[in-house]
Design a protein around this nucleic acid. Structure first.
Length: 598
RNA sequence: GCAUCCAUAGCUCAGCUGGAUAGAGCAACGGUUUUCUAAACCGUAGGUCAUAGGUUCGAAUCCUAUUGGGUGUACCA
């Protein structure tokens, strides 16, 4: 049961409170009264649940509902009739009221625009490693991060999108080492491979060769653990990491070159995904941060030092464990860096809130991180939020890079666009389009399908990616919504519609038209609700409802362009226009473009 | 073991602070085009909301326990 969040219905609640005072001489809070949509099978548009009021009225639910219904009809001109079903008071709201709402709200140019509220929010997302190309899991992260950012902007916040690139560490050294040994000077140019794929190729080679060495050592009688530690390749990689940290020129040069290739590759993937960032942070610059924070924690007595010199925090009182924050040799661990980076990001932007878009396997890490910052007395720690999302599963099971069962982001994008092209051509509607318009359309449809497919699922839930289903363009899909938009645009063009003229409030609304106005009017509150829970999914589902409602409307009325009654024609065209506007701006929040025709 | 998340139709998912007979899409079956784009619409069929208790006028929703699954519990990042 959808609750009426938008202010338009508040006047009823206010009157109900007055009614209770008048009828029963009891003061009740407005928060006690809830209004919800009336179910389809009953008369009316707004329903008040009277059960909570019964203890004030001291009468049966039916009697209370009847009393209140009569009071509302007498005292509110907008309420024309009521009926009572069990404890539910269904109110019929005047036609005029809906038309006024339509004219004064939905038809206004600023409808759906939520004014700036001064909130400053940072959204950190993507955060790739530079040793391999992006895969499906990253795609979910990127799309989620981008659309949450857009959602918060739409809800009136100022948003900073940042990307913390993990560009250093043993994993990069693995790619570098393998390239040195087996690369023969191969480059993206010489191989024709996208830079990130080239580097990823050597990461895989490293892993393969490393495994061979482990097997060889085990054959010589070493245990698995010994073999893993003693393999020459891993020792070489560790040596390379030390050389990197010592600033060894040759190693740094190679590192810069190979990271450069990866960045060129990522730039293409990001462009194709339609995501962007206001600022990049690099771990090569931040990995030494956090030691100041450790000192601060020691001074404040939040951290303690063990005999070996390692620094810890005891979180057992909070139901967690003891956690290491600095090694005995004074080097950092993951959380040390994150403490420092969090401080740096705050110093840079002074934001009120900071959202980390990171997979749910790091739930514990962020719980600890936020708790530590809070214990350190950081005033901004309250504004930290881990937007945790579930893994993407394949029908065959988990994605495993080592077994080659990953879905590569670039391949996936290419496949979606190719499928869009094939399906669109099969329909034969675009033969007269220009080459450029066609290509753009295929891209928008393919990406629309992919983005919508991933975003319509609640972030925290695991998501099953079935390639066959994801390229389905029927039903609850991106292309369905895109198609609805294109259809409306075509209609408005044919009908020679000009916006900006209001509707005469004498027009009688059909049931579907009334339902449409009610549904469309919820758009701003849907944005706010989605922003509040950081969930593009709820917005995606709302947009789908809007598209579905339009298609129903479109089918059940005679052709609008031939409508003789000018007022009725204008009403229907305006409804169509407002629908198109919501589809367009709503989809934009999801990062999806809607075509003018398709 | 402990922590945490998840469990709704054959499949993929909605169901928001508890509200009336639990909704969509896909798949299946049937229908709709001399009328504004059939990537559409209408209909049929499909459910012990994992299980058992509890709170409540009212529970898919809140609480407890159990079962099944994921993830974490690294001096990796």
């Amino acid at each position: 049961m959808l609750i009426w969040l938008f202010l338009a219905m508040n006047f009823i609640i206010t009157e109900v409170v007055k009614g209770i005072k008048h009828l029963y001489n009891e003061e009740v809070a407005e928060s006690l009264i809830s209004i919800q949509d009336t179910r389809k099978e009953f008369e009316g548009q707004a329903t008040i649940v009277v059960f909570p009021i019964v203890r004030f009225s001291k009468k049966s639910p039916e009697q209370t509902a009847n009393d209140l219904g009569a009071y509302l009809v007498d005292n509110l001109k907008e309420v024309t009739a009521f009926n009572v079903v069990k404890g539910f008071l269904n109110l019929s709201i005047a036609n005029d009221y809906w038309l006024d709402l339509f004219n004064n709200s939905l038809l206004q140019p600023d409808f759906g625009v939520i004014p700036s509220n001064g909130r400053k929010v940072m959204v950190e997302y993507s955060s790739p490693n530079t040793n391999k190309p992006l895969h499906l899991g990253h795609v979910r992260n990127n799309l989620l991060g981008y659309s949450v950012s857009e959602l918060l902007k739409a809800d009136g916040a100022e948003v900073y999108k940042v990307n913390l690139v993990n560009d250093r560490g043993i994993h990069i050294c693995k790619s570098m080492l393998a390239w040195q040994k087996w690369g023969n000077g191969e480059t993206p140019e010489s191989s024709g491979l996208k830079g990130d794929h080239l580097v990823g190729k050597y990461y895989v080679i490293f892993d393969k060769e490393y495994k061979k060495e482990i097997e060889a050592l085990k054959a010589e009688g070493q245990t698995e653990d010994e073999a893993k530690k003693n393999a020459p390749l891993i020792k070489a990689a560790q040596a390379m990491l030390l050389a990197w940290e010592a600033g060894d020129e040759a190693v740094i040069d190679l590192w810069k070159t190979m990271n450069g290739w990866v960045y060129e590759g990522f730039a293409i993937s990001y462009k194709n995904l339609g995501v962007d960032f206001d600022k990049f942070y690099y771990e090569s610059n931040t990995y030494l941060l956090g030691k100041d924070t450790v000192e601060e924690g020691l001074a404040k007595g939040v951290f303690f030092k063990k005999e070996d010199g390692s620094v810890w925090i005891d979180l057992t009182a909070d139901g967690l464990d003891q956690k290491l924050v600095l090694r005995a040799d004074g080097t950092s661990v993951y959380i040390t860096q994150d403490l420092g980076t969090a401080q740096m990001k705050y110093d840079d932007f002074k934001m009120n809130e900071s959202i980390y878009v990171v997979g749910n396997e790091q739930d514990y890490h962020f719980k600890v991180l936020f708790l530590i910052l809070d214990k350190l007395g950081k005033s901004w720690a309250k504004g930290l939020y881990h937007l945790s999302y579930g893994m993407v599963d394949l029908p065959s099971g988990k994605m495993k890079s080592r077994e080659g069962t990953v879905v590569d982001a670039d391949d996936l994008i290419a496949e979606m666009v190719a499928t869009a092209k094939q399906k669109t051509e099969a329909l034969g509607k675009v033969d007269h389009f220009s080459e450029e318009e066609r290509e753009t359309l295929y891209y928008n449809i393919g990406m629309g399908a992919l983005k919508y497919f991933l975003l319509k699922v609640e972030p925290k839930k695991r998501l099953l990616f079935d390639p066959a289903e994801s390229i389905d363009f029927q039903g609850n899909t991106g292309p369905f919504i895109q198609y609805t938009h294109a259809r409306i645009k075509s209609l408005l063009l044919k009908a020679d519609y000009t916006p900006g003229v209001f509707i005469d409030n004498q027009v009688a609304l059909s049931e579907t038209e009334l339902d449409m106005i009610i549904l469309l009017a919820k758009y701003p509150s849907e944005i706010s609700a989605a922003a509040k829970t950081f969930s593009p999914a709820s917005l995606a589902n709302y947009i789908y409802e809007v598209a579905k409602m339009f298609n129903k409307f479109y089918h059940e009325i005679p052709p609008i362009v031939k409508e003789e009654d000018e007022q009725l024609k204008r009403l229907r065209l305006s409804l169509s226009d407002v629908t198109a506007g919501i589809l367009k701006s709503g989809m934009r929040i999801l990062g999806i473009e809607v075509p003018e025709r398709m």
